[in-house]
Amino acid sequence: MDEDDCMVSVAKFYLEFTVGESCGKCTPCRIGNKRMLEILTRITEGKGEMADLDQLQNLATVIKDSALCGLGQTSPNPVLSTLSNFRDEYVEHVRAHKCRAKKCKALLTYTIDPLRCKGCSACAKSCPAQAIMGETRKPHVINPYVCIRCGMCISRCHFGAISVI
């Protein structure tokens, strides 16, 4: 794990596991973990609010305090530790809609640098969503509303013209 990992996504990854493993017996684990996962998903999709962070903190504390077994009592740990050590990353997701590790797809924008683009159309041909348009030999553009952020265009571009912000 390094700076290329998004801490919100890491917490979400662990939560997906515990939600899948929950037996469903006690309330905090059965419903609480599910709600935490829903909040984390919202944040990674850029739909989070600052109040969500407080709610996460509260939920995680209560679940850890009150769940019946070891699974429930430890499932909030990734949330609690990322919230305390990487709170700025959460805030960035919520306020600036940015994921600095570039892991949260919904928060990414693919753009073509017109100065570097030669207009070879390799990117447009490879795009599965047909989000890239432009005349041959002229700079192309990506329609952000159609783009599915798959990264195919970057791997095809020979000129390093496409970047993610």
Partner: peptide
């Protein structure tokens, strides 16, 4: 008595988490 709803939790001094 499955202790599953967790509504009846109480704080016990010296215990890490809440007790049903």
């Amino acid at each position: 008595n499955p202790a599953s709803c967790r509504i009846c939790v109480v704080e016990v001094e010296g215990r890490r988490n809440l007790a049903p």
